[in-house]
Design a protein around this nucleic acid. Structure first.
Length: 326
DNA sequence: AACTTTTACAACCGCATCATT
DNA sequence: AAATGATGCGGTTGTAAAAGT
């Protein structure tokens, strides 16, 4: 007996008798399934009001927000997303959202930032001149993010502490910890020992450059990378005064950073990066969740969403003089 | 082209709760 | 109040398709 016609019979049976009577349904419709299986099949797949297709960005944000409040109460979350089933949301969480949160250094269970989940190797390499001489990956000691080298955590902390934003201290730290070769001239060299390569002069000249430009912009961006890796995660930052805001002992909060940096100078090179734009999702109540805050558009693809995340990674400020640098 | 690995999603399982007798 | 069956729910598994080698 073709399965297609069995489904049609089941649907016809439900149309006549309504959903329910799951025990009698398989017998009357000639199905091999048990009643429970029929019910699940109906609620998760066959129901006519089920909305199929990709989750929109709004839906995704709603799921994250609700999950931060409700936890794994998938049916409760589904209740706020018309046409979506708990099973669908659960699957989407496990296959998409959870992974992205982990990649962005956010614990998907607690929704708190976790440095040990973050791809710090890539972040720091990118940060410090995309340097091949920085043996950052060795700091990690393992490919497993959970086993983060404490040295790296200290380094990140050093980089992120506003009072220590002087790049000289960063370099000093790197040298002290043998993360870069210590040179008598103070110049750095690459693996080939060539001090005139792109990275050496950069780090040598970086101090004044960074003091002028990078100091504010790069550190701010790096802070964003760690604590606010995407507009989506920004929206679920802790629950203070109607706003969600993540907190961490190591990571300065955004207001702290703003306090310690010259915001005006910062914005010169990063106008699209204003703090307001990333901290603007009100969450005075769990529902309704259709915040208008940080949406780029409602039909963004996953790749596009990933690119939002990368927006918050290190960028060289506009004022950066590459000619001088080279 | 063939094989392996990864991804995404539907389906299943077991337990908890609710409703009925 | 207890027993029984139905339903709801969250975690897990199975598998087809896609991606990678």
């Amino acid at each position: 007996m073709p399965q297609q016609s069995a489904v049609k019979r089941a649907l016809g049976y439900i149309e006549i008798h309504g959903p329910g009577n799951w025990r009698t349904l398989p017998k009357n419709a000639g199905l091999q399934r048990c009643g429970k299986s029929c019910r699940l099949r109906w609620t998760n797949y066959l129901r006519p009001d089920i909305r199929r297709g990709r989750f929109s960005f709004e839906e995704e944000e709603t799921i994250i927000q609700l999950h931060s409040i409700l936890g794994n109460k998938w049916s409760a979350i589904a209740g706020r997303l018309p046409g979506r089933t708990d099973n669908e949301i659960k699957n989407y969480w496990n296959t998409h959202i959870r992974k992205r949160l982990l990649r962005n250094g956010i614990d998907p269970v607690t929704h708190a930032p976790r440095l040990d989940y973050l791809d710090l190797s890539a972040l720091l390499s990118q940060t410090l001149c995309n340097s091949s001489l920085l043996n950052v990956s060795s700091l990690l000691g393992s490919t497993q993010p959970a086993l983060l080298n404490p040295e790296l955590l200290r380094l990140v902390n050093t980089l992120l502490t506003p009072k220590q934003e002087n790049p000289e201290m960063v370099l000093q730290y790197l040298q002290q910890n043998q993360l870069v070769p210590l040179q008598q001239t103070g110049q750095l060299q690459n693996k080939n020992g060539d001090p005139t390569n792109s990275c050496g002069p950069f780090l040598n000249q970086t101090v004044p450059i960074m003091q002028a430009n990078v100091e504010a912009g790069l550190l701010m961006n790096m802070t964003n990378s760690l604590s606010c890796t995407s507009s989506q995660e920004n929206s679920i930052l802790s629950n203070q005064g109607g706003y969600m805001q993540y907190c961490s002992s190591n990571i300065p909060t955004i207001p702290e950073v703003e306090e310690n940096l010259n915001v005006e100078a910062l914005n010169n090179g990063n106008r699209n990066f204003g703090m307001n734009s990333v901290m603007s999702t009100p969450l005075s109540s769990p529902v309704p969740m259709n915040s208008s805050s940080t949406f780029i558009n409602g039909s963004s693809t996953e790749d596009e969403r990933e690119s939002y995340s990368s927006m918050f990674k290190f960028e060289i400020p506009e004022g950066f003089d590459f000619d001088e640098f080279m």
